[in-house]
C-alpha cells in the first residue's frame, strides 16, 4: 500500500496540494483523475520522490519515501514522469536495459537480460530495438520509456500520463498490459490519466482531485457518477453504462 498523510506542497508561493491524506491500495490499479492544475502529477511525483517532500509523509510498501535511500526505493517502485525527451543518443534496447540498473548496478546477469527482452517484447518494440531514440516517433519513444519502467520489475509502478502520444490501439494495449500485471502478477499500479474513460474501463480504484484537494475516491462505480464529475469539472457531464462499467459522456 502507498500511504499518504497530511501532504502539503507549494511551488513558488502557490499552494499546489492542501493537506492530502489518502492511500493507493495494494494489488490494485489506481487512477488519478481531475481537471488541469488539480495537483495529480505533483502528487504522483512526490510519491515517486521526483520532488522533495515539503510537508507530510509518504510510505510505499512500508518504506518512508523521505528516509529510504533512493537506490532501495528504485527496487520497490518504478516511476515514469511526463518529461521523456532525452538528449542522449541511445538505442531503444539500451534505454530499456537501463531499467535493470537498480538491480545489478552495472553488472547485468542473465536474468536481467531476460527481463529486458520480455519488456521489449511486451511493448512490441522488437523491430525497433536497434533504432536510436531520436529516429523513432514520439509514441514509440514513449513506449520505450514505459518498457524501461516495466523492466524495472518493481512491486509498484507509477506512470504520469502514460497515454500521451499513444494512439488508441497502443493505449488500449498498455492498459491491458497493466491490468495483466495487477491481476496475474499481483503488482500494484498508480497512474494519472486525462481521458476518464480509460479509468472507467480499466481501474479498480479512482482518486478524483481538484484544486489540490481530494474530491472523491473509491471504485469507479462510486466515483464516476454524474454528480461527482459535474462538480469536479464544473461542467454538465452525463454517465452511461457500457459492458457493466461506467461510460462518461461530455455531450450531456
Amino acid at each position: 500500500m502507498i500511504q499518504i498523510s497530511n501532504l502539503g506542497h507549494k511551488i513558488g508561493g502557490t499552494q499546489i496540494l492542501h493537506d492530502i491524506s489518502t492511500s493507493f491500495p495494494k494489488g490494485k490499479l489506481t487512477a488519478l483523475i481531475g481537471p488541469n492544475g488539480a495537483g495529480k502529477s505533483t502528487l504522483l511525483r512526490l510519491v515517486g520522490r521526483l520532488e522533495p517532500l515539503q510537508q507530510g509523509a509518504i510510505t510505499v510498501a512500508g518504506h518512508d519515501v523521505a528516509r529510504t535511500p533512493t537506490a532501495d526505493l528504485a527496487r520497490v517502485m518504478a516511476i515514469l514522469g511526463q518529461q521523456t525527451a532525452v538528449a542522449s543518443r541511445l538505442r531503444l534496447c539500451e534505454l530499456v536495459a537501463f531499467g535493470r540498473w537498480p538491480h545489478h548496478q552495472g553488472r547485468p546477469r542473465p536474468e536481467d537480460r531476460t527481463k529486458v527482452a520480455q519488456a521489449i517484447d511486451a511493448f512490441a518494440l522488437s523491430k525497433l530495438k536497434n533504432r536510436f531514440l531520436d529516429e523513432v516517433s514520439g509514441g514509440q519513444a514513449q513506449r520505450a520509456h514505459i518498457a524501461m519502467a516495466f523492466a524495472q520489475d518493481t512491486e509498484w509502478l507509477l506512470l504520469d500520463e502514460p497515454l500521451n502520444n499513444l494512439d488508441m490501439a497502443h493505449a488500449r494495449a498498455l492498459m491491458a498490459r497493466l491490468r495483466d500485471l495487477v491481476d496475474r502478477q499481483g503488482r500494484s499500479v498508480g497512474l494519472v490519466v486525462h481521458e476518464i474513460n480509460y479509468a472507467a474501463a480499466w481501474a479498480d480504484h479512482v482518486i478524483a482531485m481538484k484544486d489540490g484537494r481530494i474530491m472523491a475516491e473509491g471504485t469507479p462505480d462510486d466515483v464516476l457518477t454524474e454528480a461527482v464529475l459535474s462538480d469536479l469539472y464544473d461542467a454538465p457531464i452525463s454517465v452511461g453504462r457500457h459492458k457493466d462499467r461506467p461510460l462518461v459522456l461530455h455531450h450531456a
Binding site: G48, R49, L50, P69, T70, A71, D72, L73, A74, R75, A78, I79, L80, G81, Q83, A85, V86, A87, S88, L90, L95, F98, G99, W101, P102, H145, M148, A149, Q152
Partner: peptide
C-alpha cells in the same frame, strides 16, 4: 554517467544518487 545524461527524472526513478 549514461543514466545521468537521461535526465534528472529518469536518474531519480532508477535510484541513482
Amino acid at each position: 554517467f549514461a543514466i545521468l545524461g537521461l535526465g534528472e527524472q529518469v536518474a531519480t526513478g532508477l535510484g541513482l544518487s
